[in-house]
Amino acid sequence: MSVLFVLIGFSLLISLSFLIAFLWANKKGQFDDTYTPAVRMLFDDIKDEKENKK
């Protein structure tokens, strides 16, 4: 059963990495703007449009 100690330690470490990932993303401003990216990704690429016309 002593392997459980190791496994629990690992599980804690993995979950800790998620916490750190979240804190990092928050600090980098990933959650600052929750609206514009959703709109931006739907825009067509303007270069393609130009080529099509030519």
Partner: peptide, 27 residues
Amino acid sequence: CSSCIWLLEHLQKLHSGILSSRVHFLK
């Protein structure tokens, strides 16, 4: 509106001096 976002993020088409532009809609 989203047209505003689109236009303001394509400002480099209007003038070559503009390198990039990004809109924060809520602010």
